[in-house]
Nucleic acid binder design. Structure first.
Length: 180
DNA sequence: TAGACGATGACCT
DNA sequence: GGTCATCGTCTAG
């Protein structure tokens, strides 16, 4: 658990491990810190629901790179969503960051989100809260201005279930939600 | 090159 | 609970 959770062969184990870690954004000079509490696992060419299932394309190339890479894509033409690459190069194992509890920089997040509730309880909302856009595609999460640091909390329980918003491979219970 | 559709979120009823 | 905005990406032809 001390090792970086994004350097693992097993994407499901990596996804569960990332729960409770701190995500620290200093994008645009504004510091925002969250505790990751919702993730999904995507297993590359083995997983029909993964963007990498059909192989490498210009969009998903980051997923085929080194562990720790941030894969940022646009969802529904509107929102930004982010994944952390966790497997060895070429395998495209990635963890979708779906939600976090904001513990620092709440004022900044309220301005960015234009509201004071539901700040980061969805992948598009989380990216907006942290100031992440497509410009961050390929960024290494071990480095500023966006770092996934170390465990802030250890989950008291982790609930699993089917992944959200996908139409394929819906049988895999690869969504994980932590309570602390 | 055109057409379909999506790892979503906001708003309205 | 249901609808719709909005556009990048991929696939088929």
């Amino acid at each position: 658990m001390n090792a970086a959770p994004w350097r693992r062969d097993d994407v499901v184990a990596a996804a569960r491990d990332i729960l409770g870690w701190r995500i620290v954004s200093e994008i645009a000079g504004k510091r925002v810190v969250g505790i990751i509490d919702e993730v999904e696992a995507y297993a590359g060419e083995l997983d029909e629901a993964s963007h990498a299932y059909r192989g490498q394309t210009p969009r998903n190339r980051v997923m085929f790179g080194a562990a720790g890479g941030l894969y940022v894509y646009r969802s529904y033409g509107i929102h930004w969503c982010m994944n952390v690459v966790v497997g060895p190069p070429g395998l495209a194992r990635a963890v979708l960051l779906r939600g976090a509890r904001i513990v620092e920089g709440t004022d900044t997040v309220i301005v960015r989100r234009g509201r004071s509730d539901h700040l980061a309880d969805g992948p598009g909302k989380l990216a907006a809260a942290l100031g992440v856009t497509g410009e961050m595609d390929g960024h290494d999460v071990a480095e500023p201005p966006l770092r996934i640091d170390r465990p802030e909390k250890v989950p008291t329980s982790i609930e699993d279930g089917p992944r959200i918003g996908i139409s394929k491979a819906t049988d895999k219970p690869w969504r994980f939600v932590a309570t602390f």
